[in-house]
Design a protein around this nucleic acid. Structure first.
Lengths: 162, 162
DNA sequence: TCATTTTACGTAGTTAACTACATATTTATT
DNA sequence: AATAAATATGTAGTTAACTACGTAAAATGA
């Protein structure tokens, strides 16, 4: 693995590698849920956790809190509602809004899900045994890239060559 | 950003965040190429770099070296060939194989691409100013997850609770 | 109060990775 | 030499994020 071609590319292949690691984890998570006979999808924990904290939220509120686009949220919550995990009502004050909350089924099953999520968290944490500031590093990346994105940074370096 | 909901989720949301960072970079890269009037796609550098090193490779050889599925490679090289950057011939010894190499256009334009790739690499590197072992950490993650994936690690932690 | 702007949601289509399956060819086995 | 197994490529369909655009409702302002 050490003298792998991808390694030779260094930071140039960073995005490729981040994506691949993420995909491997999501894929494995999907497999896990299926093996355990649970009909939930890997990214639904985001919505479950949100509604556990905030009780009732609109699509846009969820999208903002998760930094997702609203169509992504719509796709997730529609599926979750179809599966009986969410309940939605129209906001009486602002009729454009759909307010989502956890269904009885969700409230009943979440304690089981939490066991998985906790185990998963610990398992992932252990990957970083000797390096426990990885999440801070990620946050720093997120902040830096939101201030100046990959294109700006690259063009900035290009300018220096002239 | 610090007291963001996603941050509260800790390692549970690791895959989500890795994917988002990767997507932001790729998206910005696509935008950059378009702005510069270059008709190449963000992931093509993988194939260009491979063929610069190895001259001539089949689909499967490329897929193995990049740790990509072969259909992903096919999609990339077909587009690149359509755009005149690659040239393919059938292997005379094993007629199942299609051997790809760089076209004259590619050889002519790659020096320009290299300038961008180098600038991009430096720009990304600078994101890690105080932390220069990030790539080693990524490699450690890749190796660990290939030995025991997210599901196995999670189920392993679950067992400990019983 | 009427027109404009902004906001919220929804739909359609894109992207880049993937798995699963199909087909053709080569290699191995008996 | 014939059959079986493995390999190489290709195709179809899935996934989960995205942007772009459309529509309806609410908020703003002249």
């Amino acid at each position: 693995m050490k003298y792998d071609f991808i390694n030779e590319l260094g930071y140039l292949a960073l995005a490729t590698r981040l994506k691949r690691i993420s995909e491997a984890m999501v894929h494995s998570g999907r497999h896990m849920y299926k093996s355990l006979g649970m009909d939930i999808e890997p990214n639904w924990f985001l919505i479950f956790k949100l509604l556990m904290k905030y009780d009732q939220l609109s699509v846009t509120e969820m999208a903002n809190k998760l930094h997702f686009s609203h169509p992504s949220v719509i796709t997730m919550v529609n599926k979750m509602e179809l599966n009986g995990y969410l309940h939605s009502i129209q906001d009486k004050v602002d009729t454009r809004k759909r307010l989502f909350s956890l269904s009885d089924r969700a409230i009943k099953e979440i304690p089981e899900f939490e066991k998985i999520w906790e185990a998963g968290t610990i398992g992932v944490q252990k990957l970083f045994a000797y390096d426990n500031h990885f999440l801070d590093l990620l946050e720093s990346l997120e902040i830096q890239l939101s201030q100046s994105d990959f294109m700006q940074r690259t063009l900035n370096e290009l300018k220096k060559d002239e």
